Simulated scan of single mutants.
Amino acid sequence: MSRATAKNPDLSFLAVRAKREDTFAALRSITAQGLLDRSRKVVERGVYTEIPVTASAPGFRIISQDAPLYYRKAPDLAESLRGQLLPEEIELLPRGWYILGDVIVVKIHPCLEPHQARIGRALLDCYPRCRSVLRDYGIEGPFREPVREIIAGTVTETVHRENGVIFHLDARKVMFSAGNLRERMRMGNLGRGEYVVDMFAGIGYFSLPMAVHSPPRRILAIELNPNAYHYLCLNIKENRVEDIVKPILGDCAKATPEGVADRVVMGMVQVTDRYLQRGIRALRPGGVLHYHQTVPSRAYPEQAVRDIAEAARALGRGSQILRCIRVKKYSPGVLHSVVDARIE
């Protein structure tokens, strides 16, 4: 096959070339048009990214990728365990899992508990670069910490790399949601030159993408959980953003300053409304609030919008809704949403 040219790109490897800061917007538009090639990865090339597409995307520059990167086809866990489990047990095997660094996190049906070690070993066979498998039971407690058990391997500390950001974490002790990737990428395009307050910073989920890709003047990252705070400090140093991100170990209800922020990130869910007035008080007039919350699907986005309007009104301030985003499905009939609002 002859080498493709810019005018006649190879149709097998079509991609949109976008500036890195425009990646999120371009990816959202391409996905909405149904043109995203999900078999290939988004690739960074210097100051640009290449977004794989199945056909020309109107309004975007189309190139032919010289070195496309493909996703590995998800392994068939059922096939690898066939003959070791009963047919009815095969039907209960997990259909999905996610990988943090070199640790696999998976939910397992209670009826398969006697076989969890075998399932763990099978997953490690599927992913030779991984070192451990954790069974996930959900989250609990005031710090919303994961409840997880090692079923294969011994290592739980890992290094997860994503969108040019390095995250050190212990997958057994702190949360890291794979479903929030697009929101973390979006945050990496916001806040340039601003004073930002991240009220539930965790290990730096949103602070670090901002600091690495769109440097604010200052980020005040507040975290109450000592385990998460330990990794927050480590990640700030690892990503070399010590001059931008200031970590604070404390309760954001007490540690959040008033009237100083151009932007406030409230990246917690379920209990976030209890801190909403505090987040609004932190903002200067005209500042932007990112309010994360879980809402029933049937009440999206009205419930979260109402939370903001009522909290602002109680403080004698106005609010303008800029954007409502469905981050992911949280549970049956419930969404994790984020609402962007300008607070006057």
Rank of each mutant, 00 (worst) to 15 (best):
332 P>E: 02
108 I>W: 05
5 T>D: 08
305 V>W: 11
75 P>S: 08
209 P>K: 04
223 E>K: 07
157 E>D: 13
127 Y>H: 15
48 Y>C: 04
322 L>K: 09
309 A>Y: 14
344 E>H: 14
124 L>S: 01
223 E>H: 05
89 E>H: 14
186 R>T: 04
87 P>G: 08
166 I>C: 10
323 R>I: 08
34 G>E: 04
159 V>R: 10
258 E>T: 13
47 V>M: 10
164 G>R: 00
86 L>R: 15
64 S>T: 06
209 P>H: 01
327 V>E: 02
196 V>F: 00
76 D>R: 07
279 G>N: 07
137 Y>L: 09
72 R>V: 10
29 S>D: 15
276 L>R: 01
165 V>Y: 07
84 Q>L: 15
15 A>W: 00
159 V>F: 07
38 R>T: 13
338 V>I: 04
338 V>D: 02
10 D>F: 05
121 R>K: 14
143 F>V: 04
253 A>F: 14
107 K>Q: 12
229 Y>F: 15
145 E>T: 14
123 L>H: 05
177 S>Q: 07
99 I>S: 07
202 G>P: 02
300 Y>C: 08
139 I>Y: 15
153 G>K: 07
72 R>H: 11
218 R>K: 15
171 A>Q: 03
101 G>P: 00
92 L>A: 03
299 A>L: 14
145 E>D: 12
156 T>V: 09
135 R>C: 10
67 A>R: 15
340 D>V: 06
53 V>H: 05
294 T>V: 14
187 M>V: 05
235 N>F: 00
166 I>D: 08
338 V>T: 03
109 H>F: 04
121 R>G: 10
37 D>T: 06
332 P>V: 00
139 I>Q: 12
138 G>I: 03
23 T>V: 11
341 A>H: 00
185 M>L: 12
121 R>M: 11
274 R>H: 12
337 S>G: 13
269 V>K: 06
13 F>D: 10
78 A>E: 14
175 M>L: 12
263 R>S: 05
62 I>H: 07
277 Q>M: 13
314 A>D: 12
98 Y>E: 13
65 Q>I: 07
333 G>A: 04
96 G>C: 10
